[in-house]
Design a protein around this nucleic acid. Structure first.
Lengths: 343, 343
DNA sequence: GAAGGATTTGTTATCGCTAACATAGATTGT
DNA sequence: ACAATCTATGTTAGCGATAACAAATCCTTC
């Protein structure tokens, strides 16, 4: 009576309305609408008809509070501005579509503080599980996740230690393997092109792995170029031109992602360079776009969809107590795809 | 006592725990944590310290139920598989980041029945507002949205009638204007390349607008080609090759999106065709990628980020009762960007 | 046809938090 | 000094659903 005295208070339909319209108790209505418990066919039809007529939409807020269960899965990713994370989302959606669970997305912009806020916000909805990109978090964020008492899946990366479960690839290893392949093919004077993103730990780890192999072989990067913002394809072009004109005789260009790699490839072909004879190129991610380029850029698949699927399965597995428990640490192994841009 | 007798019941921290730890009432704790109402600085500090020590995370489910307000905005889009919708999301996030609101995404896969289910699911969380792509919905979905009593913003399209607010462009007009520009430049034998998606109403409307202008000029499409699935860039290539070898003397190719247009452009350039002299090309969307192509594909910007922003602003405006109310019907006007692929 | 189990429906007590109102202290004005 | 006015805090009563238990109804079966 106090609440409803607010002049702005606009009551929605409740279970009570359906209950009155159909002449049964609220509990029975609840049972019908959730398909839970035994209800006679006659009553069921009566209730469904009443609910439909009224246009009743259940209030999950109340339901979640009463049942202490929320069919939401928090998904926390750094960005939506390239296809990498939407593709992970697709994997997640794909699996969750077969369950009552629904993903809720939060974006951190690669900012640890913002990530912490987003995690806090997510956890305050008491989701069934949380999927978070990366293994690097603030101490507070890590503590919150540990204390949450729900499955937490850290995705994309396995180089580090996870709060709970984790699914991803080793970016350090990806960098190493790419470097190994490149050296094996006889390239020696190598340039690196990447993003200006100190907080993109996965890019950093690839870079470190890559460099480590060069160092072990007694080599070092001949030159580097970084960008931020703008059309990745255009930036790839510009950076490539800048790098090649600054440092002569480079025989390989390693790009931190396929998009700038594609830009670089287009540039080299237009410039009439002999790819992969005089100069080789490789990117990272294995994006679909590569299929349509004049030559297939060498790359390494980052297994985005599989990662999303596996992560979602781990979360979904808590619903089905009888199902076999999936592994809680999953490392996928991307393979180097030489395409047409290495010899 | 009954609930807590469940052996699996794992109680989270509640306001009561913080209240006991800090020696004030639950209500005062609630006030401190929400920055609402007058609380002395001393008490505030005491409460904050207790909450931090315990690692308390509020339960928004309970809060939302008690206060009858939910800081969630439902966003319902057909797909995540191309950058169009993630870019709309970016616009939405951008605006909502300055508010207490948080987006929750649902994906429909262009399926009206699934859309209806997703809308039902969203509304059952009693969000502050709903953003839905497109104007075409099932009757039931439309009825639910009307009855929800929250701002509903239908986005991307304005060719039709909206349930409540709407922000977008006229795809019919976009198609017409593109056709007009093409004819103005003297192209006459035109081929169309698009997606096999009867339920992509916006693509259909562009197609219809485009055709209408041709018809008015006494012309008709010379040939058409459709695809589904796969790398859009690669498909653009393949379709272009197929179309050009099937129908000779085409002098223009109109693509239903930039990605296949880009593939087509790469193909034509490799094939040594004279673009835009002998054959012109145009796409749709104005994606960033275009900047990095060998030539800038003619296109028309679909104003994705602005649409997302405007939609989010409409929803956000209900929070701030003093703020000026934004228009509830917003039509943006994309302009034809000729680039380098029309003469 | 009455006992006894199965099936169907109802009642009660929360879930954790917040709106509204109530009250206790502190402060002020005359 | 005492009523009037603030400030700071507490109390009460839900929000709309569901879990657990209780009661009522329906069949069997002998």
């Amino acid at each position: 009576m106090t609440r409803r005295s607010d002049p702005d208070y606009r009551p929605n339909l409740t279970l009570r309305d359906v209950s009155e319209a159909s002449g049964v108790s609220e509990m029975t209505v609840s049972r019908v609408l959730r398909n839970r418990g035994e209800v006679s066919e006659k009553t069921r039809q009566k209730v469904l008809a009443a609910a439909r007529d009224l246009g009743y939409v259940p209030n999950k807020i109340a339901g979640a509070l009463a049942s202490n269960s929320v069919n939401l899965v928090g998904v926390i990713i750094p960005s939506l501005s390239n296809m990498v994370f939407p593709e992970v989302m697709m994997g997640i959606s794909d699996v969750l579509d077969d369950t009552p669970l629904q993903p809720v997305v939060g974006v951190t912009d690669y900012d640890p503080e913002k990530e912490e806020r987003v995690i806090f916000e997510m956890l305050s909805w008491r989701p069934t599980g949380l999927i978070v990109a990366g293994l690097e978090h603030t101490d507070a964020a890590r503590k919150m996740m540990q204390a949450a008492g729900i499955p937490i899946v850290e995705i994309m990366d396995v180089d580090g230690s996870a709060v709970d479960a984790c699914v991803g690839i080793s970016h350090e290893r990806a960098g190493r393997e790419t470097a190994t392949e490149i050296l094996k093919r006889g390239y020696r004077k190598i340039g690196f092109l990447g993003t200006k993103m100190p907080l993109d730990h996965r890019a950093r780890k690839r870079f470190e792995g890559f460099n480590a192999v060069l160092t072990e072989a007694g080599l070092a990067l001949a030159d580097e170029e970084y960008y931020s913002g703008g059309s990745a394809l255009a930036k790839g072009r510009e950076m490539t031109q800048a790098l090649l004109s600054r440092t002569k005789d480079l025989d390989f260009l390693y790009y931190s992602n396929d998009m700038i790699g594609a830009g670089g490839l287009l540039y080299c072909l237009e410039a009439g360079l002999n790819v992969p004879g005089d100069i080789g190129m490789a990117g990272f991610n294995g994006v679909e776009l590569i299929e349509g380029l004049p030559r297939r850029l060498a790359t390494m698949d980052s297994c985005r969809t599989e990662i999303g699927k596996a992560a979602a399965q781990i979360i979904a597995s808590v619903l089905d107590k009888s199902a076999p428990k999936p592994a809680r640490q999953i490392e996928l192994s991307p393979v180097f795809a030489p395409g047409d841009t290495v010899r």
